[in-house]
């Protein structure tokens, strides 16, 4: 019996965090080896930025205080950054975890001594890593290929940082919660993508938010994407564009509060709905 170890009395301290970090590496590697998710969540905003920049290159999107004409690429960059948060966070997580639920991945993990919290660290880490790479790619392409002038004011980048981190975390948490919705892994795409697509259309990602009817603007304000897009606009659009916002200002306090509320809602929903496996009755 020499080969069978005595049962450990307790685990080494810091194990949850150590396994969480190990999960991040594992998740990121698996993510980039999955061709379809790389395209539909990672490259999608870049593809759309390119299409809009080219298709609307003749169109006017207004001028800043000094008379500089805002190009399509400049106008759509914040929108695509916001869309990236939604896709890398919410859409990716919801579809990914729904798939893991039905293909047996979660069942296997649930039978192993992996803490649920380590699993979540892995998922959030994956979203953060892929989200940062996605945003960096968008910014680089916008600046180089489409000559979008990036902000130089550090205060704007600070706003970008908190909107990004808070937004991506909120979207990831909501994605984990939404993963409970599809009944099978196969139906996950069909259930989740319409939700994210509609949100993008009503929240000022594809369509100019200031041109939507008031009632639709108010409806969209219930959801976090409208606020994230607004936060991103405050970073990348000229300051005089704030007069186009619903209350004539960037309302970053509103962005912070609305996103925080959704973060809490998401965390509560995760706590209630997440299970390694569907328990039988």
């Amino acid at each position: 019996m020499t080969a069978i170890a005595a049962a450990p009395l307790r685990f080494a301290p810091g194990r949850t965090l150590r396994l969480g970090l190990s999960r991040i590496g594992y998740e990121v590697r698996a993510y980039f080896r999955q061709g379809d998710s790389v395209f539909f969540t990672f490259l999608f905003p870049l593809v759309f930025l390119t299409i809009f920049s080219v298709a609307f290159s003749e169109q006017s999107f207004g001028t800043d205080a000094s008379g500089h004409k805002v190009t399509a690429a400049e106008f759509y960059l914040p929108a695509m950054l916001a869309a990236g948060l939604l896709l890398s966070g919410l859409q990716n997580m919801a579809i990914d975890i729904a798939g893991e639920k039905s293909d047996g991945t979660l069942k296997r993990l649930g039978g192993s001594p992996l803490p649920v919290f380590s699993y979540f660290i892995g998922k959030l880490g994956q979203v953060l890593v892929t989200g940062i790479l996605q945003a960096a790619l968008l910014l680089i392409v916008a600046a180089t290929a489409f000559q979008v002038p990036l902000p130089t004011d550090p205060a704007r980048w600070l706003t970008f940082a908190w909107v990004f981190v808070l937004g991506v975390s909120t979207c990831a948490v909501l994605g984990i919660a939404l993963s409970a919705l599809p009944r099978t892994g196969k139906s996950a795409t069909a259930v989740i993508i319409p939700i994210t697509l509609i949100l993008q259309f009503i929240s000022g990602v594809y369509l100019n938010f200031s041109q939507l009817p008031d009632w639709l603007q108010n409806f969209a304000s219930i959801f976090p994407l409208k606020w994230l897009a607004q936060g991103m606009r405050s970073v990348f659009l000229p300051d005089n564009f704030k007069t186009l916002e619903p209350d004539g200002s960037w309302n970053l306090t509103g962005v912070l509060i609305a996103t925080l509320i959704w973060l809490v809602v998401g965390l509560v929903l995760c706590r209630i709905t997440f299970r390694w496996i569907r328990k039988d009755t």
Binding site: L9, G104, R108, G111
Partner: peptide
């Protein structure tokens, strides 16, 4: 609990995981 699970080995009936990692990974 997790300590208990660490003393078990479970080979479930076949699953259909996506398998983007190598055997060694």
């Amino acid at each position: 609990d997790l300590l208990w699970k660490s003393r078990l080995g479970i080979v479930l009936q076949s699953t259909g995981e996506s398998g983007n990692l190598t055997v060694h990974e």
